[in-house]
């Protein structure tokens, strides 16, 4: 084990031999680390890279009996089919709108909450609030949507009871297309806005207290401190979160949309993820839906690269 000491010591490593030899020695010294990384490596090969290899079925007519590479090559047929189909426009628009409205609402709220929480003077109140607002994050999507169905039920739901007692008509929210996006986004915010403050609270905790003290000496009010200290400090992390969100504009929360979809709200609840699930697994149209998947992936990848590039050019933060 004398060899390992040298590596740990770092600086003492003698720079003898060619690059190849040095590399070989280093590998010999660190073989154990390769053992540590091996399970992860295999995991990623099996569950991430093998499916990437399988993406080629988007250009083939996949039949299970012929396997992935044995199935007939059909080029861009499935992509053409998708874009010519009646559904493609509706799916893309629905997915985009759900994500854009979702981002507009659910992006600023956690930042706002983190700033206000940071300004609370009472430490115990602060930690109590933190404990409470994280709780909904731990509720499952199935339960969340189940609660929506129960509370919004036209016959027994508490919301409609309140509406009718105020003399209004009861509304069957879950089948009314006009309410789908609102309910989807509002329940998302209820569940995750509190949790999403964590990152911003961490960033605010990292601010040097002397900045606030200096501001107090200069007679700054709380709103001024927020404006000139908190917000500039939150910008980098907010920019990164925004860039990441832009990379998933066509990705959808399929689980939730699937649960909230009812025959009547199809016109707005039919989004790409749900369609891929229903056509791909329900009707075994593997190649066709793999093509849709690939299209989404490529668009997401290009978007995230463009946004990242633009953000870099503007002198703001970037991912890499």
């Amino acid at each position: 084990m004398a060899q390992t000491i040298r590596i740990g010591g770092g600086a003492k490593r003698p720079d003898k031999g060619s690059l190849g030899k040095r590399f070989a020695r280093s590998v010999r010294l660190h073989w154990q680390l390769y053992v540590f990384i091996a399970p992860i490596f295999i995991f990623f090969i099996l569950f991430h890279y093998a499916p990437l290899y399988g993406v080629q079925i988007a250009f083939r007519d996949y039949k299970a009996v012929f396997g992935i590479t044995g199935s007939k090559w059909v080029g861009l047929k499935h992509f053409r089919d998708f874009f010519r189909s009646y559904y493609s426009m509706r799916l893309i628009v629905n997915t985009l709108l759900l994500n854009i409205f979702g981002l507009l609402w659910s992006f600023p709220i956690p930042i706002f909450m983190a700033i206000l929480l940071n300004q609370l003077n009472n430490k115990r109140a602060k930690s109590f609030i933190q404990t409470i607002i994280y709780v909904p994050h731990f509720i499952s999507t199935v339960v969340m949507v189940g609660v929506l169905f129960l509370f919004l039920s036209p016959t027994s739901g508490i919301i409609n009871k309140a509406l009718t007692s105020l003399g209004m008509k009861s509304i069957f929210f879950m089948i009314e297309p006009g309410y789908f996006r609102t309910l989807f986004i509002a329940s998302d915010i209820w569940q995750h806005a509190g949790w999403n403050t964590i990152l911003f609270i961490a960033a605010l905790t990292g601010i040097d207290p002397e900045l606030y003290e200096a501001a107090s000496v200069d007679g700054a009010s709380k709103t001024q401190k927020i404006r000139y200290i908190d917000i500039p400090h939150l910008m980098p992390i907010a920019a990164i979160m925004l860039i990441l969100s832009c990379g998933s504009m066509l990705v959808s929360n399929t689980d939730k949309a699937l649960l909230m979809q009812t025959p009547n709200n199809m016109s707005v609840s039919d989004i790409i993820g749900v369609y891929v699930y229903q056509q791909g697994l329900g009707k075994a149209q593997f190649s066709y839906t793999a093509a849709i998947n690939l299209f989404v992936n490529v668009v997401n990848f290009i978007t995230i690269m463009l946004v990242n590039f633009a953000s870099k050019k503007l002198g703001e933060t970037s991912l890499f």
């Binding site: 990623f44 569950f47 499916p51 399988g54 399929t254 793999a290 992936n297």
Partner: peptide, 23 residues
């Protein structure tokens, strides 16, 4: 290289259907 290999999967994935076929 290992880092890149891992992080790349955050930005590009096979998707539901190819994953299903492989699994």
């Amino acid at each position: 290289a290992v880092n890149f290999f891992i992080i790349f999967t955050m930005f590009f994935s096979g998707g539901l259907i190819p994953s299903f076929i492989i699994n």
